[in-house]
Lab assay of single mutants.
Amino acid sequence: NQASVVANTLIPINTALTLVMMRSEVVTPVGIPAEDIPRLVSMTVNRAVPLGTTLMPDMVKGYA
């Protein structure tokens, strides 16, 4: 099973992502692959992402 990116904290809308905000976890449904974490750093989220939420491609500006 592939690990996905999961919010390690509440990420407010329009926040630039940092490494400490994200962790990898095997979850269903599958979200952004964990190997993309380095690429996500400094990208911003377009909605509030609660703790434990899987990051989906449409949640990160410029990812999809």
Rank of each mutant, 00 (worst) to 15 (best):
N8C: 05
N46F: 10
N8H: 08
M56K: 10
V5H: 01
R39H: 15
V26P: 09
P50W: 07
A48G: 15
T54M: 04
E25W: 04
R39I: 12
K61G: 09
N1C: 05
E25D: 13
V27L: 06
P50Y: 08
V5E: 00
I13F: 14
V20I: 13
R47I: 11
M59S: 04
A34G: 12
L10N: 08
S4R: 00
V49T: 04
G52H: 14
P29F: 03
K61P: 09
T44E: 10
N1S: 14
P50I: 07
I11G: 00
P38T: 10
L51C: 14
D58H: 14
V5C: 04
M56L: 13
A64T: 14
V26H: 07
L17N: 01
V30P: 11
A48Y: 12
A48H: 14
V41E: 05
A16C: 07
V6E: 01
V20W: 10
A7K: 02
T54Y: 00
E35M: 07
V27Q: 04
M43H: 11
I13D: 13
I13N: 14
N1A: 15
M59V: 11
V30M: 13
V6P: 01
M56S: 08
T54N: 02
I32H: 00
T18H: 07
A64P: 09
V60W: 01
N14R: 06
M59T: 07
I37P: 00
A48T: 15
M21V: 04
T44W: 11
T53Y: 06
L55M: 13
V60P: 00
D58Q: 08
T9V: 11
I13L: 12
V6N: 01
L17G: 02
T53W: 08
L17P: 02
V6C: 05
V6A: 03
K61V: 11
M56F: 08
R39E: 04
G52D: 14
M56H: 07
V60H: 02
V6H: 01
D36Q: 09
V5I: 14
S4C: 03
L40I: 13
A3R: 04
V45C: 05
V49G: 01
D36H: 11
R47N: 07
I32V: 08
L55K: 00
